[in-house]
Amino acid sequence: MTSGAVIELAGVTKVYGGAGPAGVRALRGINLRFRPGQYVSIEGPSGCGKTTLLNLLGLIDTPTEGEVRWDGVNVADGSERERARFRLRSIGFVFQRFYLLPTLTVRENVELPLRPLLRGRAERRARAVELLESVGLSARAGFYPSQLSGGEEQRVAIARALVNSPALLLADEPTGELDSDNAGKVLDLLEALHRERQTTLIVVTHNPEVARRARRHLTLRDGRVESDVREGETT
């Protein structure tokens, strides 16, 4: 687990489809710095580079140019294995479509990231149940994802994302597939966990309600940061 890290994007550019004229520049020279424990929303029109930015922050993708630094160390230039290990220990993901594994039970889904880290099955199970309790789903531990509602699935996904106590929690449209009632519950939960654990939370969203809860608001346009508003201060 990595806690309290300062995360930076330094001169990050991402080009898809090669560096030639046919290449699509999804991000153009992004420079951002996230302090530990920040709650950040990233907004912008479709195709502006929000998900690409999130993928680069989560080391799911690598920048064409620039660096992704954790406490000053570039973590994006490691091998796939090194980046996977870093993701496992330091980053949690919440996806729009939940992405629970349908063949595993709720508890097994939450346990999944613990498998490489904790050898003891009982220890893994206890940890998973603890997280399920924190999202109010311990009674559903033996259910399969297909037996849950969308809101419940997303809460399981949040439990899975937090089970390794990551320093950074990335959420890509976490309420995009939910009705307003469930969306509110999920946002309450994310906010509560963020406050309780002091995890850096970065949320990509189109939803103004989601963005409103964040303390820092990034807006992207055409692969560039159009605005960066924090606590009433604009940069």
């Binding site: 294995r81 996977a84 993701r87 980053i91 992405y99 990231p113 498998r115 899975r160």
Partner: peptide, 16 residues
Amino acid sequence: RREIGIRRALGLPSRS
């Protein structure tokens, strides 16, 4: 591919 992608995104080792 998506299930494999999820496992890899979560950081599960290649060997698993």
